[in-house]
Design a protein around this nucleic acid. Structure first.
Length: 203
DNA sequence: ATTCGGATTCTCT
DNA sequence: GAGAATCCGAATA
């Protein structure tokens, strides 16, 4: 399998393009020298200042949303419902606060390591379902606030790579984003993207 | 200082 | 399909 690193330019597009381009790419999480790899199969684009669903709607700038104003490739991680983390990858140049929520992934290595820290009840879930949702994906990758606002380029603990897995346009399904009823008309956009027929896509 | 509710998930029914 | 779990950011005052 041919692996290649991903450079800065990859992240310097709008969030919709980045959300599609992230499908099929691999998140590599390193914990105590051991690697967990998850292939991204579902994403959502949050388009920033003009998107009511976005935390940076109307350029809202608070301590939480500061990572969104950094350069593409920066992480944006926050706690939701008091118990789950959402992992986002910032898109675009500085001061253009768009990001992609990584919603689901396929575990392709490191299953043993993951089982060591999952709750016993979770361990018997099928592998395909373990990272089938944003909170679950963050749990599998042990992503929490300590990884917030870091660059995915050349980071020791969390990086993004590509292999020879290819995604064609016809393999990508576009759908409405999930759980953003508060976003009024912006909830209608088809800014959720996932790989057709993939088992690990969230329900 | 206080209030409100969320880019979720699991466990019931 | 409904309800709970559970923290903290954001808005209001």
């Amino acid at each position: 399998m041919l692996n290649s690193t991903i450079n800065q330019d990859f992240f310097l597009s709008d969030a919709i393009s980045l959300a599609k381009n992230l499908l099929g790419k691999i998140l590599v999480r390193t914990i105590n020298g051991q690697q967990i790899k998850v292939r991204i199969v579902e994403t959502e684009a949050y388009m920033g200042a003009n998107d009511r669903a976005s935390h940076s709607y109307q350029f809202r700038k608070t301590s939480r949303t500061l990572p969104l104003y950094q350069i593409g490739g920066t992480t944006y991680i926050y706690l939701i419902y008091g118990m789950y983390y959402c992992f986002n990858i910032v898109a675009n140049a500085q001061e253009n606060p768009q990001a992609v929520l990584v919603r689901a992934g396929e575990i392709i290595s490191g299953q043993k390591i993951i089982e060591d820290y999952l709750k016993p009840t979770k361990r018997k879930q099928s592998l395909a379902k373990l990272a089938s949702g944003p909170g679950k994906l963050a749990m599998v990758l042990k992503i929490d606030r300590s990884l917030n606002q870091i660059s995915l380029l050349n980071n020791q603990e969390l990086t993004l790579i590509a292999d020879d897995f290819t995604v064609n346009e016809e393999d990508i399904i576009a759908a409405k984003r999930i759980n953003i009823d508060y976003a009024k008309e912006d909830k209608e956009h088809l800014w959720r993207f996932y790989l057709k027929n993939h088992l690990a896509v969230s329900k």
